[in-house]
Computed example of a mutant assay.
Amino acid sequence: MGGGEEFYVGYFQEPGRAEAEIEPDVRGRLAGFYAALSAGTMPAPGRPGPHFVAPGGRLRDRFPTGPPPSWLSRRELDVHAAEFDGCGHWIQRERPDEVNRLLTDWLASLPPA
């Protein structure tokens, strides 16, 4: 992409930048992200996709408008959005103690080899 656009990974590197966009509307942000990456609702060929952010822009500026993908029910979207309140994309880094506890509990529940 030209024009000084930024790859989405860089957008998350500045502390608080992505959170300022995502946290006020986690549900809407997830719905837009899923729509941008789903075959039936993604941007048309030749239109900018969600992987780059325009200078001074936001991630959601590239999300398509309209209904969510057909495979995503309102109930499922609500569940996903609820799981992201208080924790973001890198759960293992934001909540290492909880992730480790869940993993060790699961491992302990497995039958011996």
Rank of each mutant, 00 (worst) to 15 (best):
A54C: 03
D61R: 12
W71H: 14
S73C: 11
D97C: 02
P112A: 14
I22H: 00
G56N: 08
E23R: 12
E21N: 05
R60T: 11
G4C: 06
P68H: 06
D25E: 13
D105E: 15
P64I: 01
G40S: 15
V99H: 02
A108I: 06
E83W: 11
L37M: 10
A108M: 09
P68W: 02
G16Q: 07
L30V: 09
F12A: 06
H51F: 14
P43M: 01
P50E: 07
I22T: 00
R62S: 11
R60M: 07
D61L: 05
A39W: 12
A113Q: 15
G49T: 00
V9A: 15
P45F: 10
G2W: 06
P15S: 10
T104N: 12
G28C: 11
W90P: 00
P69R: 05
E14T: 15
F52I: 03
A20Y: 06
V79C: 10
G46T: 09
P67L: 04
V9C: 04
S109R: 13
P112G: 14
P69Q: 03
A54R: 13
A35N: 03
W90L: 14
A36G: 12
D105A: 14
D97W: 09
R58V: 04
L102P: 00
P45T: 11
L103G: 06
A18P: 00
Q92A: 15
G32N: 05
R95G: 01
G28K: 05
R75F: 05
R95W: 04
G3Y: 02
D97P: 01
G86F: 05
V79I: 15
D105F: 05
P48I: 04
I91K: 10
G88S: 06
E14P: 01
I91N: 01
E98K: 06
A35Y: 01
H89F: 11
E14A: 14
G56R: 01
